[in-house]
Amino acid sequence: MQSYLDEVIRPRLQPLKAETVAPEAIVDYLLGLHGAFHNLSSMPASNGCLLINAAGAPIARDPQVSRLIADYRTELHDAIAQGIRAHHSTRSAAGEPQLADAVTNLVVAAFALARIDSAQAAQSIETAVRLFTGGDATSSHS
Rank of each mutant, 00 (worst) to 15 (best):
E96T: 14
S89P: 00
G35H: 12
G134D: 15
A128L: 11
S139K: 09
P15D: 11
V129G: 10
D78P: 04
V8H: 03
P97F: 04
P11K: 12
I80V: 15
A109F: 05
D6L: 07
S124D: 13
T138Q: 15
G95Q: 12
I52Q: 01
T90C: 00
D62Y: 01
A94Y: 12
A70Q: 14
M1E: 02
N105Y: 08
I80M: 05
L5A: 07
Q64P: 00
L106Y: 14
T74P: 01
S140C: 08
A81N: 12
F132D: 12
Y4D: 05
M43D: 08
A128W: 14
D71H: 09
N105M: 12
Q64W: 02
A60K: 03
A86K: 02
P11F: 11
A18I: 11
L30S: 07
S42L: 03
A100Q: 05
P58W: 06
F111T: 00
R10S: 07
L40E: 10
D78T: 15
H141E: 01
D101Y: 08
E126A: 15
A114K: 04
H87E: 01
A137N: 13
G56H: 11
A55N: 04
S66I: 00
S140G: 05
D62M: 02
Q82N: 15
E19T: 15
H34F: 15
E96F: 09
P63C: 03
L76K: 03
G32E: 07
F111R: 03
L51V: 10
T138H: 10
N105R: 12
A112R: 10
A110H: 07
A100Y: 04
G32S: 14
V65M: 10
A45F: 06
G135T: 13
A25N: 09
A55L: 03
Q120I: 08
D71E: 15
G134T: 15
G35R: 15
A55R: 11
Q82H: 13
E96W: 08
